[in-house]
Amino acid sequence: MSVWLVCLLSRPLRRLESLSYSLILGGALGNAFDRAVRGQVIDYLDFHLRGWHWPAFNIADMAIVGGVIALVLQSLVSAEQPTGAKESR
């Protein structure tokens, strides 16, 4: 998957799309590094509030989720633009 993301990043992309793929790639490589070096991914952000427990996560997980959210936003913005809107007048 990481090789595919690197191939995507080698093409000309919009700024938000490039950021999205970069965040996903960075998070995936961060988690892979943890698995290779430590044998496990360490989730160190663990929140509790009034009996509610949020799932534990780490910075790499936040990068992946942020990249996916940005990618979805980019696709929604692109879908709203008419086809001819990209042409300059």
Rank of each mutant, 00 (worst) to 15 (best):
A36G: 07
A85Y: 11
A70I: 05
A60L: 03
L71E: 06
W54E: 03
R38E: 06
S78K: 06
F57N: 03
W54Q: 02
E87K: 10
Y21M: 05
A32C: 13
I59A: 13
N31Y: 03
S10N: 13
L13R: 04
K86P: 11
L19G: 09
D34G: 07
H53F: 09
L5D: 05
G26W: 02
S78G: 12
R35G: 04
F57Q: 02
Q74C: 15
S2Y: 12
H48Q: 10
F57T: 02
F33T: 08
S10D: 13
L19M: 10
A70V: 07
G27P: 04
G39R: 02
G39P: 04
S10M: 11
G84R: 07
R89D: 14
L16N: 15
I59Y: 12
Q40F: 12
V72P: 08
S2Q: 14
D34T: 00
G30Y: 00
G51N: 02
R15V: 13
G84S: 11
W52M: 08
A56L: 02
P55L: 00
R89K: 14
H53T: 11
A85M: 06
R15A: 15
P82G: 14
G26S: 07
G30V: 00
G39L: 00
P82E: 13
V68K: 01
S88C: 12
R14I: 00
A70D: 04
M1E: 14
F47I: 07
R38P: 06
G30F: 01
S10L: 09
A79S: 13
M62C: 15
A60S: 08
W54S: 01
A79E: 11
V72C: 08
E17I: 05
L8W: 13
N31V: 00
E80S: 15
I42A: 10
G30N: 01
A36D: 06
L25H: 00
L13H: 04
P12D: 05
V77L: 14
Y44W: 09
L49D: 13
R11C: 13
W52L: 11
L8Y: 12
C7V: 09
L5V: 04
N58K: 01
L19F: 10
R14Y: 08
L13F: 04
A28I: 05
A28Y: 02
V41W: 00
L13D: 01
S18G: 15
W54D: 03
A56Y: 03
A32S: 14
D43S: 04
L9A: 05
L5K: 08
I42Y: 10
S78T: 09
F47Y: 10
D43P: 08
R89L: 15
R35N: 04
F33A: 11
E17S: 12
M1W: 15
D46E: 05
L13K: 01
R35S: 07
W52R: 10
P12V: 03
K86Y: 15
D61H: 03
M62N: 07
